[in-house]
Amino acid sequence: MAIESLLIINKSGGLLYQRNFIDKPPQSQAPNQPEPQQQLNSNDYLILASTLHGVFAIASQLTPKALQLSQNDIDYTIPYIPNVGMPTNGGRTGNGSTVGGGSGSSGPGSNKLGSFKGDDFFKDSFVSWNKSGLRQLCTDQFTMFIYQTMTGLKFVAISTTVMPQQKVATPSGTDKLDRYGNSSNLAIQIADNFLRKVYCLYSDYVMKDPFYSMEMPIKSDLFDKKVRAMIKNMNE
């Protein structure tokens, strides 16, 4: 899953953070196209963020009557998927050193996850807080995933992966759905795992920055660096 773009939207629909991670096709394509694809400006992204925020609220209003009547509980548990957004080689060794000696793991390089211990931010399945809002938007060119936190913060990832249009691999697909509950499929689970890790980074590098004022655009270069590293791991 290649992440193209990441947005963070605060609880009132303001855009806190927006970055593109895949460079637009270089000049070689420009001569072919008479009108160069105009890049979205920051105002466009602000509109985009508030639109998403609005749609998010509408989505819960549209719950079908059949669902309201039947009250069958949807399982919102998202399983932990290892190695999402993690470096592929260093993970195991880091684990060994940390478990081996609690006091011995003082090597300054080993603790790369900020205030998180071990080789990953979390290791357990978790329950999605996004129970009635928008979670995924599939289009012909990209897929958008939304992870919502308990406080209403929304992390939006735009992936270049396109969901298959035909019924592909239905038997194995249903098998997985049975195992993980039917509220989400594998792509959503991977995206939720990834975005939850971005949330972990946010809790470290944004919330622990003394000069960050709440609900304001994120300018921390450290956060930027860590997110870029994680997305590089994702895209590899």
């Binding site: 390089g109 622990k208 300018k219 450290l222």
Partner: peptide
């Protein structure tokens, strides 16, 4: 790698 200030952005 100063531990206390590790979350403060370098651009600050």
């Amino acid at each position: 790698e100063p531990q206390l200030t590790q979350f403060i952005p370098q651009s600050s």
